[in-house]
Design a protein around this nucleic acid. Structure first.
Lengths: 338, 338
DNA sequence: GTGAAAGCGCTAACAC
DNA sequence: GTGTTAGCGCTTTCAC
């Protein structure tokens, strides 16, 4: 319609090549495109250039409130660089994860951000072996030698334990996350180290292992702890959803929080500040995690890192947000220091 | 590697064409593919077939808890049919919406699901004019003549008003959603009709118009209502987030819910059952909305509907969930004028 | 049952 | 500054 060769039209429509074309011609082409409602076919473009300008993002479940802020962080950074993001849910199911990764690879994403990594995740290993640029977020596993962005779990747990200790608690239980997740394992490790470092009696600091990061699991494990190892005055949950489950069990048994039990969560999910009692929790900057992970991946795309270079992971600082679910231990319940 | 022509390999790898190829040959091809870690390039396939097996989904903001369940519904149905979903955020910004639609079209999505439609949305009209299969969800606008799936807002408001009326409330305020959104407009309309039908005095049923579906807006508008038209004993918010804002203002002014003011929300967002007081609200089956919308779109893709056929919209039944934020009006007691 | 060949819409060398 | 050409990886009609 502009009376030019397709090649010229292509140049006129591409901001990076526009300078190669006569200003008047370019205007004519753009005008024709506008008239025709022409939208360049990015599939064809990608087939030619073998870059799709799109990233894949894998999350366990988009409906889990932890992940939308991360995804939003990824999207915003990606959009700024002209990248789209394809989101897929794994439901923490390895088989589904495998299928989703295959689908994203078939769609030729330029790189992948995984919020769904499990410990020694074979899918991640395969991806790395295949040379696909990958960055982990939230769940970072150093053993995998994949760069990632996450909160500094160890320090977060340290702050939470220190807070409870300062309130006089000496018997602190831990509601640990699934052993298969890097976060669950790291937080449990940190919990054991920190309580030991403060000289707390290991027997007074029982641990329950949740099978998943779900409210019902939190409720079940809390009940289990109360039944099998009573006597603790505070409970540190590896995740806010688990803490919500704890609230449920306490309510069901007529126990009050924080009077009977102080509860600390992890993540600072949206709306946990509006619960009663409002949840004391370790704030993880999810949006920033996502944004940083996207930046890390984009930088690796534009400047590929040699295989022998060590994968650098970023640990974002966390801060404890003290609210109403934690309080001083009751005098009668304080365990005498030995 | 299998020693066959690419065309044969293609047939062997495609479940629908597999019957055209010798079983032994097919096995050989699949084995070679496995060995090589071969993943078919769906870009090239799509370029040839001009179907991408992907849908676009536009939401105002993925971090708004209303939308993840809808997206999950879409994804699950799409996945079952072998479709991927590309998600994009509009932030309710028409310009951003335009760009996102262009990007999705450039990626040749086979159809679009919009949760972000505004009233008489020009982007939607342009899409329809261009013959792109479109389905609306949540925000459905009959005027646009686009099929959609949403809750039956009119009936939802009816139930909420009837509930408050049954509790003795005769002065009910409405915190209306943005006039630019179909949901805001429909709920306001229904509110006016229902209160009138019950013979309530219009002057005793003041309305505040929120500029956006955000907590802060809800807080601001509640304050405005309390200041300008005190005397109402119940407040019906067009959306749970607005209701949360209402809670904030009540707390700030030392007013109790439901003793001083009964509050009803809309949507039944995740976690509003855990607030104090737990929120009485109209439950919208978000997941089902998304799932139905996806089904509707997929059916239109496989059996295109002639242009002259009327767009059929689906209204899902809603139900009021009565919790603790509503209670009987106390005789002679009204919200104290400041 | 398999091979041959054309072409989806675009871009990037290369001419001129 | 613009036209020409080849080809990205795949599918599909048509031969045989």
């Amino acid at each position: 319609m502009a009376g030019v060769h397709p090649g010229t039209a292509s140049r006129a429509m591409n901001p990076d090549m526009e300078h190669l074309v006569n200003e008047a011609t370019a205007r004519r082409v753009r005008h024709a495109a506008e008239q025709l409602g022409y939208v360049p076919n990015s599939l064809a473009r990608s087939l030619k250039t073998s870059r799709t300008q799109s990233l894949g993002a894998l999350v366990p479940d988009i409906a889990n409130p932890l992940f939308p802020p991360i995804l939003r962080g990824i999207e915003d950074v990606a959009a700024e660089a002209g990248f789209n993001v394809l989101i897929a849910n794994t439901d923490d199911d390895p088989e589904r994860e495998r299928r989703q990764v295959a689908s994203l690879r078939a769609r030729q994403v330029d790189g992948l951000i995984l919020a769904s990594a499990r410990r020694a995740d074979p899918v991640v290993l395969a991806l790395v072996a295949a040379g696909v640029p990958v960055v982990l977020v939230n769940r970072v596993e150093p053993v995998l030698c994949v760069p990632g962005v996450a909160g500094d779990d160890t320090d977060g747990i340290r702050q939470a334990v220190a807070h409870l200790h300062a309130l006089g608690h000496r018997r602190i239980a831990h509601l640990a996350g699934p052993a298969g997740t890097p976060t669950g394992a790291a937080r449990l490790d940190a919990f054991r180290r920190e309580t030991a470092a403060l000289g707390l009696d290991a027997a007074g600091c029982p641990v329950a292992l949740a099978a998943s990061y779900r409210t019902e699991e939190g409720a079940r494990c809390t009940a289990e702890l109360l039944d099998s190892a009573p006597g603790f005055t505070a409970l540190l949950a590896a995740n806010d959803l688990l803490a919500l489950g704890c609230f449920e069990t306490l309510a069901a048994r007529g126990l009050r929080c924080p009077e009977d039990l102080s509860v600390v969560g992890f993540n600072d999910m949206p709306f946990v500040d509006r619960l009663t009692p409002s949840l004391t929790t370790v704030r993880v900057p999810q949006y920033d995690c996502g944004a940083q992970a996207a930046r890390l991946l984009l930088s690796r795309l534009s400047a590929p890192v040699p295989a022998d270079e060590t994968a650098e992971s970023v640990l974002l600082p966390l801060s404890l947000v003290v609210r109403r679910s934690t309080g001083p231990v009751r005098a009668g319940e304080a365990v005498p220091a030995r």
